[in-house]
């Protein structure tokens, strides 16, 4: 029986893969069915997963086994209920309190972390002597890093007109930005091709058995 369901699952996977791929030719009912089933399944899966893997182990179980030690969990539970009030038109305003708390806490936590990791540490990482390195490739890379960072930031400085030496620096900054966009596009293309490879490995390996999975 297990073997039957394994095979059935693989055939189902192959059928849905073709249904989704068929959109590349043109929009059609097979694609639409596959898309709707995917959306419905995802929503259902998330709903059940949230109950069994978040609410039960983090809230219901601790409260039912040792209430005295875990009563404090009632506060986030109450805030969660308030959040659901968004669904009740007359009581929608109640959901603003947990949202306000969530935004405030997240902003406070994220501000410190981002300031340290994405600002201070990133700036410190560019404060290097670019001419010190084991080989000329490293030195050139370091010079590009420093020049790219400074000119890139200059491009985003809008309180002074981009002309003269300042304009030239901003122009150089644009070229660095262009290179970074190109690199990002290249990586994105690579990622999309990787997904196609993954699907074809499934079709040719697991489904048809032409290649070893």
């Amino acid at each position: 029986m297990t073997h039957f369901f394994n095979v059935f699952g693989i055939w189902l996977g192959a059928a849905f893969t073709f249904a989704i791929f068929s959109f590349l030719y043109k929009d059609n009912p097979f694609y639409k069915v596959a898309e709707q089933i995917f959306v419905g399944l995802s929503a259902g899966y998330w709903f059940i997963y949230t109950i069994f893997n978040i609410l039960i182990p983090n809230l219901f179980l601790p409260l039912s086994t040792d209430f005295a030690a875990n009563w404090i969990k009632l506060i986030p539970a109450f805030l969660g209920v308030l959040m659901l009030m968004r669904l009740v038109p007359n009581a929608e305003w109640m959901s603003r309190y947990p949202i306000a708390l969530l935004i405030g806490t997240t902003s406070g936590l994220a501000f410190l972390r981002y300031l340290k990791s994405d600002v201070i540490n990133q700036i410190t990482a560019t404060m290097i002597n670019p001419f010190v390195g084991n080989n000329w490739v490293t030195v050139v890379g370091q010079i590009l890093l420093v020049v790219g960072t400074i000119t890139g930031v200059i491009y985003f400085y809008f309180s002074k007109k981009h002309e003269g030496a300042f304009g030239v620096s901003a122009k150089i900054g644009i070229y660095f930005l262009m290179v970074s966009f190109g690199a990002a596009f290249g990586y994105t293309a690579m990622a999309r091709v990787s997904l196609l490879i993954g699907r074809l490995q499934f079709l040719l390996g697991d489904w048809l058995g032409i290649i070893s999975p």
């Binding site: 990791s117 540490n121 990133q122 990482a125 560019t126 990586y187 994105t188 990622a191």
Partner: peptide
């Protein structure tokens, strides 16, 4: 990381060693 995320994560591979190396996509 996935190929799509590489350009946003790569800056952490720096002199400060915020990240020790990085595996970029399928490659």
């Amino acid at each position: 990381v996935t190929g799509v995320s590489v350009s946003s994560v790569m800056p952490y591979v720096n002199e400060q060693k915020q990240l020790t190396g990085l595996l970029a996509g399928l490659k």
